Amino acid sequence: MKLLILGGTAWLGHRTALAAAAEGHEVTCAARGISGAPPSGAAFLSIDRDADGGLAEAAGQRWDAVIDVSRQPGQVRRAVRDLADAADFYVFVSTGNVYASQKEYGQDEDAPLLPPLASDVMESMESYGPAKVACEQAVTSGFGPSRRAIVRAGLIGGPGDHSGRSGYWPLRFAHPADAGGRVLVPDAGAQPTQLIDVRDLAQWLVDVARERTAGIFNAVGDTVPLAQHLAAAASAAGPGIPLPEHEPASTGAAGEKQGSAVAVAQQWLREQGVGEWSGPRSLPLWLEDQDWQGMNARSNARARRAGLTLRPLEQTLADTLAWEENEGIDRPRGAGLSGNEERELLARLDAGPGAVTAGRGKAES
């Protein structure tokens, strides 16, 4: 297969190019090159997608398939215009943010979408969902339903995840900030989580392009409760790490047992200024707002039937931990509590009621 990847130098695009090159495909990564170099085995084509004729050189060749990860409607509209006669199939990587509601569990690909962004340029992340809707519409309009695949990705994790969302928990369990080995977790064990390994997504994008699997797909991981995700993170961290528990067994001072996970009331966390999901001073993947929990509980049945395979969550977290350790345990991250922040919060808990300690012994009793 002669494959054109519009991108291919940043995280997902690079992994996709790597997977395609490993199969022996003729891969060309078309990008500005600012995010890095393409993997070994892939050619590089310098382009400017913001220029009207930025894809002229690519449009002058013949491609079996194109894979596009852009979020800018203008870039996608121009690519579809210029490549409609040069490529047989177009794979567009979209997002679950296109859905009008993030509340319902089990939504499939037929759920209502947000209105498309009219502008060619997405000015801020507040317009991310509408921008991707506009991109999807451009691809379908230019290539038709039978010559395109729309792949709506969910939360992507794994080695290389600089957001910190998939690496924070295994790293924290492997290297607790607290001298007593305690790890602060939200008492939200039933909340859904859904993570897809970047390597699984990348491989499936190549498969879809190769097989020309037309359709619209939720490319998301299996939904597991937060408690199960944290247990997998603790297991990935190595033997002897306590499994978190989230059902309150008692109230009172925290930290009575060394080496235990400390499940803390969500209200208390909010009062201490701890954020949800991502960003500084946060607990990654925690998402208290029920109007948004459905984003972690979408159906992946259609993608599964189309060949998407997922490695065990614990393997993803273990590999991400190894990457995090190699990058540096104490480096700044895009999500989570710093060591000092976690120690400060645990000290506040020690001074008063509000937490539940949970360790492996407690969980098995």
Rank of each mutant, 00 (worst) to 15 (best):
E23L: 15
H25T: 04
V27G: 06
T28G: 05
T28E: 06
P39F: 13
F44Q: 12
L45F: 09
I47D: 01
R49Q: 10
D52C: 00
G53N: 05
G54L: 07
E57T: 14
E57H: 08
E57S: 15
A59D: 01
G60T: 07
G60H: 13
G60Q: 13
A65C: 05
A65M: 04
V69Q: 11
S70M: 08
R71N: 13
Q72E: 15
P73C: 10
P73T: 14
Q75G: 09
Q75E: 15
R77D: 06
R78Q: 13
V80M: 05
R81H: 14
A84W: 02
A84C: 11
D85C: 09
D88S: 11
F89Y: 09
V93I: 05
T95L: 12
G96M: 10
N97P: 01
V98K: 14
S101N: 12
S101M: 05
Q102V: 01
D108L: 02
D108G: 05
E109P: 01
E109T: 15
D110R: 12
D110C: 00
P112N: 00
L114F: 02
L114P: 02
P115A: 01
S119C: 02
D120H: 09
E126A: 15
E126Y: 10
S127W: 02
Y128P: 13
G129C: 06
P130Q: 13
A134M: 08
E136V: 04
Q137V: 03
A138H: 04
V139H: 08
V139G: 03
P145V: 13
S146I: 00
S146Q: 09
R147F: 12
R148C: 15
A149W: 04
I150H: 08
R152P: 00
R152G: 01
A153S: 15
I156N: 05
G157Y: 08
G158L: 03
P159F: 13
P159E: 09
G160A: 14
S163E: 14
G164Q: 10
G164H: 02
R165S: 08
G167P: 00
Y168H: 11
W169Y: 04
